[in-house]
Amino acid sequence: MVERDDALAARVWRRYDRRERLIRYGVLLATLMVVVWAVQDIDIFWPWVWDAPNQISSLGGRMWPPDPSRLGEILSAMLETVHIATLATMLTVLVALPVAYIAAQNTTPNRACLWLGRFILVSSRSVNTIIWALLFVAIFGPGVLAGILAIMCRSIGFIGKLMGEAIEEIDRRPVEAMQATGASKLKVIAYAVVPQVMPAFFAIVILRWDINIRESTVLGLVGAGGIGVILQGSIDTFAWPTVATILIAIITLVLIGEAITGMLRGKVL
């Protein structure tokens, strides 16, 4: 027994070899340096940081109790918010699927389409919904159209990118089997690609709808419709109890959205 233990002890086992460890330490060090730089250089007045909890609880105190007097107005604005998110998500699907198709390496017709698809996805994703909204409000004026377009422009990148990745990650073997039957490219896609990405598709669209509900709550801050219009008004007039009501309404909406999302996910997958 003792002998065996000795033999075991003599064998040194390490999780990573020397090179891997060097890389790991290097990455760690670089991250650490970036963080130190960020902490030291950032324009933060540190005493405020320690005071922040007080300030936050004081603001919370001013909000309590919530003021429900404008509930009817708030509810109809919430409904508008939901419409913006839902319609925009539906419309996005129509645009995002072709883009995902050309932006996935294994389905794209050619290199030019691949880069075009990636360009659309990147520019859509790089510009935030609010900034898209700023742009569309400037073009089409304040209102829900600007909101819908803004949500769409941002969602195309999200859905398109994730769908593209789902297409790239499919099991290659059914594709091979379909090719072996003599099926054309479109038939291979219909049989071997589409069924495999269906669950991902529903999951992604549902996830994005969920996000879009949240996003559309702030569109109003730049005039693009929904609950944000009332929220901005209340904050500007320091009507904190009304702000609290709106926040509660938003949480409720998001919870309902989450519940629907969960239910749909359970149904679809």
Binding site: P174, A177, M178, K187, A190, Y191, A192, P195, Q196
Partner: peptide
């Protein structure tokens, strides 16, 4: 190399993909 999410029948009929039209498929 079956298509897991399709029915057995669809998998079997997939053998006919080279013969039928895209619409039929």
């Amino acid at each position: 190399n079956l298509i897991d999410r399709l029915t057995v029948m669809e998998n079997v009929l997939a053998g006919r993909l080279g013969y039928v039209s895209l619409f039929q498929a």
